[in-house]
Design a binder for these strands. Structure first.
Length: 145
DNA sequence: GCCAACGTTGGC
DNA sequence: GCCAACGTTGGC
């Protein structure tokens, strides 16, 4: 799961222990979150759009998917008039803190790792903020610590 | 700050 | 249904 650290960083998650992953406004990412995520799923936490880009820690899905009520909040940056309480369009999960790495596993390191060349993250044009990571990819990333 | 790549919107 | 225009993402 990607996040811009200026918006929400691994340090924020460590401090809070748990957060709502609101604001996903992309259908593919929503579908993945809504249909595939289960409580206990482990998450690579990725910092994008920052000085040191890469995987910075681990989180865990700690709720069922549920409607993103920020979409009904007119004051929220994530407000979407098409999403109603009766017919919510957008969904989110809660993410809990597991671990913050001592170092960032950078995007360039991941790009250099042949075992990870199939990772969604390094596919051309892949901008999705939530991506499936295969078990072997997950384990390989952790080996790079 | 630039810009490529992608997604969404809306006219036709 | 096509596609141009526009907005966003995100690496560099």
């Amino acid at each position: 799961m990607k996040s811009e650290p200026s918006t929400y960083s691994i340090d924020d998650l460590e401090r809070e222990g748990k957060t709502q992953w609101e604001g996903v406004r992309n259908y593919q990412a929503r579908n993945f979150m809504r249909d595939e995520m289960k409580i206990g799923d482990l998450v690579l936490f990725y910092h994008s759009n920052t000085k040191t880009i890469g995987v910075v820690g681990i989180g865990k899905v700690c709720s069922e998917p549920y409607p993103d009520h920020f979409a009904q909040n007119k004051k929220s940056a994530y407000y979407d008039e098409k999403s109603t309480k009766e017919n919510p369009i957008w969904f989110m999960v809660d993410v809990c803190f597991v671990e913050k790495f001592k170092k960032t596993i950078t995007l360039s390191e991941i790009k250099e790792n042949k075992i990870l060349k199939g990772m969604k993250l390094v596919q051309k044009g892949m901008r999705l903020s939530i991506q499936l990571v295969l078990k072997k990819e997950y384990e390989e990333v952790l080996k790079m610590l």
